[in-house]
């Protein structure tokens, strides 16, 4: 990471630009979600909106991580630690999602709120 005073002075501009990008990204997400003319896919929320929204959010998150958290220039150990967490976090989500989608029965089978139980005689 840039530690010398000159390098820090230089990077201040960079921080401002990233801040601006984050603002714009936020505005963009809200516009896409609220202005009918910018609505992609079907009317209202659908999978396209979801992908677009998450893509913008991920980009923003990437900027924060890379620039504000200095991941653009970090030590190897840090990449291992944080990367490890991301990998195992992905395992947690993906394998659970897989397990929950590969079922031997219909999950909505028990979905009705009136239980099919006869009480008494």
């Amino acid at each position: 990471m840039a530690d010398s005073p000159e390098a820090i002075r230089k990077s201040i501009r960079k921080y401002l630009i990233v801040g601006g990008i984050l603002f714009l990204g936020t505005v963009l997400t809200v516009l896409v979600a609220t202005v009918p003319a910018l609505d992609i896919g079907r009317h209202g929320f659908d999978v396209y909106d979801c992908v677009l929204g998450l893509a913008i959010a991920s980009t923003k998150a990437g900027f924060v991580a890379v620039v504000f958290m200095h991941l653009n220039d970090e030590k190897k150990a840090i990449y291992w630690i944080f990367g490890g967490a991301l990998v195992f976090g992905a395992f947690l989500y993906l394998l659970t999602a897989w397990a929950k989608s590969d079922l031997i029965h219909d999950p909505l089978f028990y979905g009705d709120s009136k239980p099919n139980i006869k009480l008494g005689h």
Partner: peptide
């Protein structure tokens, strides 16, 4: 920054989706 990062995801999924 990490707290900010969480909010970056929390905001769209709760308010916009």
């Amino acid at each position: 920054h990490f707290v900010d990062l969480i909010w970056i995801f929390a905001f769209p999924i709760f308010y916009l989706m």
